[in-house]
Design a binder for these strands. Structure first.
Length: 961
RNA sequence: GCCCAGGUGGCGGAAUUGGUAGACGCGCUGGAUUCAAAAUCCAGUUCCCCUGGAGUGCGGGUUCGAUUCCCGCCCUGGGUACCA
């Protein structure tokens, strides 16, 4: 391949040739990007005799800010891995797409009137350009966008399937709702073990006598997608509900707005049904322990018992959940959540005012207030009494906001001696603290350990705690006042959002009941609206659409004016949450253009679960849980042959930005250099990092950037420069510390950027972005290039490789590198991979090696890291047809690595004193003999005889004196 | 509070099963080349009271030998929380 002469050099012909063969990364990279696109080099074969490998990245939300240097970190790692897998002969699926529904585009639309589809399209183009610039080997023919109707058609379809399913606890599987209806018709619901909160029983006769409305409202209690009045996180500022994982410390994840509790009729998904499988499924996954632990905590399985307490003078019973049934004799009072349904009924007349006041106070508190006041103890006695099921004693009933209505049964049996919160509560209100632990002092704090012996507890007295738990559950079950029970912290996921830019529900309402639109009529396309805000009467934005009704005869969306509630009905106004589309996108990639199914069973069976998933750990309780849930559901219903989506996952660390500051005096007139700032009263101001080089401010550029300081007085350093301060923070536009990959690609090239991002440190570690080392990586690539281009007379560089037999030492360098790179790859240790390439290049440069065989192998080995330069050199080596993307990875021949001699460090009491070069084949005894005769021994033995002589062959010699 | 990850030179970091601590790169210092600069090349660079000694957050322990294993603390980052 002959390069096009550099036009800039036309007038300097003497230098033309030399310049020609320099590492001109701009020309090389542009050329190969075009080559790959034109030849569809990375298009994945659908059928192949090769083994499959699926490498997935978390697809980005295309925001207006574009990619910053943190985004590509994971993408580069996965791209390197995908390229290696291709070289190893795998049929690799390595796709990319966009999570293109979401809040920012909608908020931008509210502010500007710009349709979110247009903003999103623009942003996607920008992202695509940026991604292309880095030279990723994505198969773009499989791109997905969650906001495209061809895609969300299937998101809607999955929702209708969830609606049409229930969870059978007996089989631990989702099953079709028809099977449940059939059971109801024949046997009623008493034999059904389903995941539901519905507790009434009905016979077949009763079922068959129900009206269709009654039937449907019962079925809602079983469906995996159901409408229910539930407590939701309502964010007034965003005007929408949020899922638990979208609320952080009582504030919305997006925008940090306060979130309150509100009861609303919303779609929910019964993820709770999968609690146990989501938990046990973690065991087989190759994920980090920390992310598994986060999911375990989120699912929050706790085992214990439910126990019923009778209420004195009432037929009502209070059910409590406890993990410590063994402490039942320690109960001295019960505490109910203020919202507990029995509170109003049981409260005695004299307590009504106080209870109502407390309830009101509790309801007004936001989640955040409640969390902020954790140490504050409050509660009210409601006047009524419960009866202890074993002692028959009466125990007081209280309400307190430390008991949550939404967890367990909304009521607890208080055991102050065994639970610190109960202890605190008892102390605060002067309630009895009964000690039921043998030889344990509970005068200062509760005893919560599960070690010890129970005392003062009737039939439990004398039992160790662990057996007392078992015995207590038996007793409770025998008395028929409770049973052993497992509780999960995991809540069903609220699936409605009061937003515009999301998937519309394929749902219309007839007589107040939801009906699904048949799959053959999907997608239900998002309607056009005039404005993206809620309607004046508080309906979600889709309420602004004039054409949002479903014609059940024509099977199409029609004008609202046509609604007659006989054949034309109103459509659902909510849209689906952001995580709907991202819960199954990895399946769509397998068969992205399928128009008859979300993906064919043939393709999903071939590709199976993702072999390697790289992405951030911030999705642990959101996306990663929901995606597992949907995968299990689709597997249960027979659409997939596997039920875990991501076999192995690596979580890349966050790249932080390094912000720069100038120090402005409080009067705003002077700007003080860092070392002088202690002498003034100053405020630090973020300054754009492009104006700062090595902490030194470009004062002229700064004046142009901030004209208000053009006249300011700069207090500078002795050397005349202005020194900025710095801090490591999250990258953000407002902190002026965003580094885009584009400028680095422009300055150093994509290959340098790729290798530098990998060289920064271990992939999983968070680290500040710092470009000061990028020269080192760039120089490495130039040095690598020079291996192929001999520098003659110090002036001309021409392509020049030798065809001689490779030397022994060059072979050793090559094969050592092959071995190390493959070990690094298995460990996902990309940073040491880069350094091993540097070592190889340094050694071959030293050896003056320009051997074709050596360099060809090294080139293939390096190509996943730095694909552009390697493609170019590959062609120069004579592979005229181009591309080494599907070449074979060289294999390590260990016979080249065997060394004849080894330089033994000789240490005394563990301290290395000198070295000796010995034959590698010597045995321990010969080594000892040889070392003992050495003249250096005299000095370190100081006339003594060694107590011990340790030889580790091939490692070390240690003399104990 | 509880759970998880981590703490190594001026900096980013390396050290696969306990076996030469500081690979590789940055930065810095000196030198070569150059009219000069860039680039490139060569040498040096953990610290100190320097023929020696200390040293992988701190204090102990096991071992011939510990960044690596054990015990107790400190600090940083992440997760989570009146979850009964």
């Amino acid at each position: 391949m002959i390069l096009i002469p550099n036009r800039n050099c036309i007038f300097k012909p003497s230098k033309l040739k030399a310049k020609n063969m320099e590492y001109n990364f701009r020309e090389i990279e542009t050329k190969w990007r075009q080559f790959w696109a034109a030849n569809e080099t990375f298009k994945t074969e659908h059928t192949s005799t090769k083994p499959k490998y699926y490498v997935l990245d978390m697809f980005p939300y295309p925001s207006g800010a574009g990619l910053h240097v943190g985004h590509p970190l994971g993408y580069i790692a996965s791209d390197i891995y995908a390229r290696y897998k291709r070289l190893q002969g795998f049929n690799v699926l390595h796709p990319m797409g966009y999570d293109s529904f979401g809040l920012p585009a909608e908020q931008y639309a509210i502010q500007t009137g710009q349709h979110p589809a247009i903003t999103t399209e623009d942003n996607i183009h920008r992202y695509r350009d940026q991604l292309d610039n880095i030279g990723f080997s994505f198969d773009w023919s499989k791109e997905v966008r969650t906001s495209s109707p061809e895609y969300y058609k299937w998101t809607q379809w999955i929702f209708t399937e969830l609606f049409a399913s229930w969870f059978n606890n007996a089989t631990q599987k989702a099953e079709p709702i028809e099977a449940l209806i059939e059971k109801f018709e024949k046997e009623g619901n008493s034999t059904v073990t389903a995941c539901t909160d519905f507790e009434q029983t009905f016979s077949a006769e009763q079922w068959n006598a129900f009206t269709s409305i009654e039937k449907e409202s019962i079925l809602q209690e079983y469906r995996l997608a159901y409408l229910a009045d539930s407590w939701v996180n309502w964010c007034p500022a965003l005007g929408t509900v949020l899922a638990n994982d979208e609320v952080i410390n009582g504030l919305s994840e997006r925008g940090n707005h306060p979130v309150e509790q509100k009861k609303m009729r919303q779609w929910s998904l019964r993820i709770k049904a999968y609690g146990e499988r989501l938990l046990t499924g973690l065991e087989e996954l190759d994920w980090t322990e920390s992310i598994k632990e986060i999911q375990r905590n989120w699912i929050g399985k706790s085992q214990g018992a439910s126990v019923e307490f009778n209420v004195e003078g009432s037929s009502e019973k209070i059910e409590v959940f406890t993990t410590r049934p063994d402490t039942i004799f320690g109960v001295t009072f019960l505490v109910l959540a203020p919202e507990h349904p029995l509170v109003n009924q049981l409260t005695t007349e004299d307590r009504k005012v106080a209870v109502a006041a407390y309830q009101k106070e509790a309801s007004l508190k936001t989640e955040r207030d409640r969390q902020a006041n954790v140490k504050h103890i409050s509660g009210v006695n409601i006047g009524a009494y419960a009866i202890h099921p074993f002692t028959g004693e009466i125990v007081e009933l209280w309400i307190g906001d430390y008991v949550l209505a939404s967890y367990g049964t909304g009521a607890v049996m208080a055991v102050p001696c065994g639970d610190q919160r109960d202890w605190d509560f008892a102390r605060h209100f002067n309630l009895e603290i009964k000690n039921i632990f043998e030889n344990i002092d509970i005068s200062e704090a509760a005893y919560a350990e599960k070690e010890g012996v129970i005392a003062n507890s009737g039939f439990l007295t004398g039992l160790p705690i662990k057996s007392a738990i078992v015995k207590a559950i038996e007793a409770v079950e025998e008395k028929q006042i409770g049973k052993g029970k497992t509780n999960y912290r995991l809540r069903d996921a609220v699936f409605s959002r009061q937003r515009y830019w999301g998937e519309p529900f394929p749902v219309y309402y007839k007589e107040g009941l939801p009906h699904m639109i048949d799959a053959q009529h999907l997608p239900i396309v998002l309607p056009e609206v005039e404005k993206y805000l809620p309607t004046e009467d508080g309906q979600p934005p889709l309420g602004n659409s004039k054409d949002w009704a479903w014609d059940t005869i024509a099977n199409k969306v029609v004008s609202n004016d046509a609604i007659d509630n006989t054949s034309i009905f109103p459509l659902e106004l909510n849209t689906m949450p952001g995580w709907a589309g991202s819960s199954w996108y990895f399946l769509r990639y397998m068969d992205a253009s399928n128009s008859t199914a979300f993906a064919s069973k043939e393709q999903t069976t071939y590709w199976n679960s993702v072999d390697l998933y790289i992405g951030g750990s911030e999705h642990a309780t959101g996306h990663l849980l929901y995606a597992r849930f949907w995968t299990k559901f689709l597997a249960d219903r027979g659409y997939l042959s596997f039920d875990e989506p991501f076999k192995k996952m690596i979580n890349q660390g966050m790249i932080l930005g390094r912000s720069s500051f100038v120090y402005r005096t409080t009067d705003g007139k002077q700007l003080i250099s860092k070392s002088q700032k202690e002498n003034f009263e100053t405020i630090p101001l973020h300054v754009d990092i492009s104006l700062v080089d090595n902490d030194r401010l470009n004062i002229e550029a700064f004046k142009k950037w901030r004209p208000e300081y053009a006249e300011a007085n700069f207090v500078i350093e002795e050397d005349g420069s202005y020194l900025c301060g710095s801090e490591v923070e999250k990258m953000s536009k407002s902190k002026f510390n965003v580094q885009t990959p584009d400028e680095l690609v422009e300055k150093f090239g994509a290959d340098t950027l790729r290798m530098y991002e990998m060289f920064l440190g271990p992939l999983e570690q968070s680290k500040p972005w710092d470009t000061k080392g990028i020269n080192g990586v760039h120089n490495f690539l130039r040095k690598f290039w020079r291996l192929f281009h001999q520098n003659e007379n110090g002036k001309e560089s021409i392509f020049n490789v030798s065809d001689e037999e490779p030397t022994k030492e060059a072979l050793k360098t090559l094969h050592k590198t092959i071995q190390k790179i493959s070990i690094d790859l298995e460990r996902f240790s990309f940073n040491t991979g880069v350094s091993n390439f540097m070592i190889a290049t340094n050694e071959l440069t030293e050896q003056k090696c320009s051997n074709r065989a050596i360099l060809t192998d090294l080139l293939v080995l390096l190509s996943p890291y730095a694909p552009h330069i390697c493609e170019e050199l590959w062609v120069q080596l004579g592979h005229e047809a181009g591309t080494l993307s599907h070449a074979s990875l060289p294999i390590c021949n260990e016979s080249y690595l065997v060394a004849d001699t080894f330089s033994y460090p000789v240490s005394f009491n563990g301290k290395v004193r000198f070295k000796v070069e010995l034959s590698a084949s010597l045995d321990s005894k010969s080594i000892e003999d040889h070392v003992m005769k050495m003249k250096e021994m005299e000095k370190y033995l100081e006339g003594k005889t060694p107590k011990k002589f340790i030889v580790v062959p091939g490692r070390i010699v240690n003399v104990v004196v």
